[in-house]
Design a binder for these strands. Structure first.
Length: 124
DNA sequence: CATCTGACACTAT
DNA sequence: TATAGTGCCAGAT
């Protein structure tokens, strides 16, 4: 990692978080961002979804369970979700039944002020 | 380095 | 419920 701090790690964290959303469940951009450790970076989640392949992108929705994908892509997302057993309430997903709750996470990835003696102290 | 842009979120109207 | 303005964050120009 960089002395300055993490860099590519952000995308990696977000990707990992997205993969934890199980089949038949959904999450929102905002909740994924928080769970990954980047509260407020909802737009970053969207960027990651477009940048990487192999992610369960259909399980990520806008606040309230709304599909944010425009046009046909949005229709496909809805279709895929329904294939997974996800139900809708009008145009939005019934979050009450399908929202995936992430485990609590650190408020932020801030640089921990040197915590304990580090791994070296423990020595291997 | 300044701006613009986008699969967003939140609040006010 | 729909629209508009503001805040966010990183990548592209």
């Amino acid at each position: 990692m960089n002395a300055s701090g993490r860099k590519t790690g952000m995308h990696e964290n977000i990707r990992r978080t997205i993969r934890t959303v199980p089949h038949g469940k959904v999450a929102t951009y905002g909740s994924v961002a928080r769970a990954a450790g980047y509260p407020g970076a909802s737009r970053l989640v969207a960027r990651v979804l477009q940048s990487y392949e192999g992610l369960p992108w259909q399980r990520i929705l806008g606040a309230g369970g709304q599909i944010k994908l425009p046009g046909e892509a949005g229709m496909e997302q809805r279709f895929r979700l329904q294939m997974e057993g996800v139900t809708f309430r009008g145009r939005r997903v019934n979050m009450t039944l399908h929202e995936h709750l992430f485990a609590k996470r650190k408020p932020a990835p801030k640089k921990q002020a040197k915590k304990i003696g580090s791994k070296q102290a423990a020595n291997h």
